[in-house]
């Protein structure tokens, strides 16, 4: 296992894409956070400090007005961990250097998860710094509510990265995996949710199914609009942070398990 981790760690830091993905994530987060913080609404009766800080840190994702931008870029690191193996015919060289497929897979999962989590924390800290610089945070920087959002988005990003890795391993196609990871959470889930709401015509059955859309459910870990607002606007009642987190975690576990099973079984 140590050998596989050494291999994966060096593999990660000897390709340019790792650097530009990390750079792009941090630069984009910095630019957007500072723009958001500089133009944030005044804190008062309508928005409290914790809501504004959370929105800056998550670039609006905590209010459900945008997807968690940084997760999409960081997720590519997960996709590339297996995508490069298949796109460039590296997988056979990898497995002749490391015959244990389980070790190769686990090493990729661990490095993807750790890197995604660290980057998500870095993004959150950038958001906090921007908030501290431009707004009167009134103690929100250390509040449990804001840090609850941060923990949620770190977990979401980590699971997103693992889903990217598993998707690339399942498809054995980097381009296909990138397309799936960009389209499924942001477009396909939204369309499916809308269809379920329309089909249900006010009933509960289809609405219940919509709660299990994995990335939408997972986003409840950092999304903080009142549940009744969502129910009114979208016509369904999502799980809370814990329930949504469990749905995305289970989905990720199933995806990763399926990817591992096929990786062990398929020809390289």
């Amino acid at each position: 296992m140590t050998a596989a981790l050494r291999y994966e760690w060096r593999r990660l830091w000897t390709i340019r894409s790792t650097y530009w993905l990390i750079g792009a994530t941090l630069v984009a987060q910095g630019v957007f956070c500072f723009i958001a913080a500089a133009n944030s609404p005044s804190i008062g009766s309508f928005f409290d400090a914790e809501e504004v800080v959370s929105a800056i840190v998550s670039l609006g994702a905590s209010y459900g007005v945008s997807p968690l931008f940084s997760a999409y870029i960081i997720g590519l690191i997960g996709v590339f961990s297996f995508g490069h193996e298949y796109r460039h015919g590296m997988i056979r060289a990898t497995l002749t250097a490391l015959p244990s497929r389980t070790a190769v897979f686990v090493a990729k999962a661990l490095t993807t998860a750790v890197l995604a989590a660290l980057l998500a924390v870095a993004c959150a800290l950038i958001g906090l710094a921007a908030a501290a610089l431009y707004i009167d945070t009134r103690g929100a920087l250390t509040s449990g509510a804001v840090w609850g959002v941060i923990v949620g988005l770190v977990l979401f990003t980590t699971l997103f990265g693992l889903c990217g890795m598993a998707t690339a391993a399942l498809l054995r196609n980097q381009t296909g995996a990138v397309a799936v990871m960009l389209l499924f959470p942001s477009v396909i889930e939204a369309v499916v949710r809308l269809l379920l709401i329309l089909v249900s015509r006010g009933g509960n059955d289809a609405n219940m199914l919509a709660r299990f859309l994995p990335f939408d459910a997972g986003s409840q870990m950092f999304a903080r609009p009142a549940a009744d607002v969502i129910a009114d606007v979208l016509g369904y009642d999502p799980f809370g942070a814990v329930g949504g987190g469990i749905v995305l975690t289970l989905f990720t576990c199933v995806l990763v398990a399926a990817a591992l099973a096929l990786f062990l079984q398929r020809d390289a």
Binding site: A3, A4, R6, Y7, W9, R10, R11, T14, I15, R16, H84, H88, G89, M90, R92, A93, T96, A97, L98, P99
Partner: peptide
């Protein structure tokens, strides 16, 4: 295993932008 069995199975089994020396460093690390 690379200390016991060396294998060449296909042409150009490497990432196109990873430097040649780094390609070997990755394999050596394992």
């Amino acid at each position: 295993p690379m200390r016991q069995v060396g294998a060449l199975l296909e042409a150009k089994p490497f990432h196109p932008t990873r430097k040649a020396r780094n390609h070997l460093r990755v394999l050596a690390a394992a």
